[in-house]
């Protein structure tokens, strides 16, 4: 990693769901570029190790326990961030919970829909609304980044209710790009496919899945949560993307080419 990268020096970023997976990768990458990162994890026992890894690498980070399904919890996270660091420039909403594969005709709304809607969609509502004032104050550096999925564009045969929640996030990015653009805030999405811990564990028990994913991916590998996905989030968070808003950047090695 380029240790001279200081694109986010002096800026403060909150990353939800940063205790593992894609969120962790984004938190690490933003910290490598000089941001002070708030690891907003639901439980400190997952968030704190990420903080310690960032500190060991010479970065700056802290953990604030945050439940994105609770407006009060997100409000506390934003307030504590501003109180501790004096500002908030970048809000990344990544946290997400699902209950796995389901059939649409048999699915139960409480079991299959609500956990995804609450974390992805309502979490986006809360993160955007509660961070808005801080992002406006951070002009011209205010950034809202939502982590969505290629499935939010093309639908999903395995998790049909996953796609609409991810689609809603894309529509929110387009809408807020229009509404918050005059305030100098950019709003974008990243749609990654990367080797999260859950996926890596699956690979260990099902090597054929890795081979299949690599075979269908033009770049012939599964993405890295930090160097691949985190770097796209860093671009969108940085001044390099100051004139980019309302967009979805697909980061999946070229598997989905439908945009």
């Amino acid at each position: 990693m380029d240790v001279t990268d200081s694109r986010l020096a002096g800026r403060v970023a909150v990353v939800t769901g940063a205790g593992q997976g894609v969120g962790e990768g984004i938190a690490r990458r933003l910290a490598q570029a000089g941001a002070t990162v708030v690891v907003a994890a639901r439980r400190a026992e997952t968030g704190q190790p990420v903080v310690e890894a960032i500190l060991e690498a010479g970065g700056a980070a802290t953990c604030i326990e945050t439940d994105v399904t609770s407006r009060d919890s997100v409000r506390h996270c934003v307030a504590a961030t501003r109180e501790q660091f004096g500002r908030l420039d970048v809000m990344v909403h990544n946290a997400f919970t699902s209950n796995g594969r389901h059939r649409l005709e048999d699915c139960d709304l409480d079991r299959h829909w609500t956990p995804m809607s609450r974390t992805a969609v309502w979490g986006s509502l809360y993160c955007a609304q509660e961070a808005h004032q801080a992002l406006r104050a951070a002009r011209p550096h205010g950034r809202l980044i939502l982590i969505t999925s290629p499935s939010g564009v093309e639908g999903s045969a395995n998790m049909p209710l996953y796609s609409p929640v991810k689609a809603a996030q894309r529509a929110l990015a387009k809408s807020l790009a229009r509404e918050w653009g005059p305030e100098g805030i950019t709003v974008n999405c990243v749609a990654p496919v990367a080797g999260s811990p859950a996926l890596v564990r699956t690979f260990e028990t099902n090597p054929a899945l890795r081979a299949a994913m690599e075979a269908r991916t033009p770049l012939r590998r599964v993405g890295d949560i930090t160097t691949d996905v985190g770097s796209v989030a860093l671009f969108l968070a940085s001044d390099d993307a100051a004139y980019v808003t309302g967009q979805t950047v697909v980061c999946d090695g070229g598997s989905f080419l439908g945009l």
């Binding site: 049909p160 209710l161 609409p164 809603a168 894309r170």
Partner: peptide, 19 residues
């Protein structure tokens, strides 16, 4: 409104794939 409309539109794709 946009979030609901787009969510419904992509739900259509998922339903098409399964059904």
């Amino acid at each position: 409104t946009a979030m609901a409309a787009e969510a419904v539109r992509v739900l259509v794709k998922s339903a098409a794939r399964q059904w």
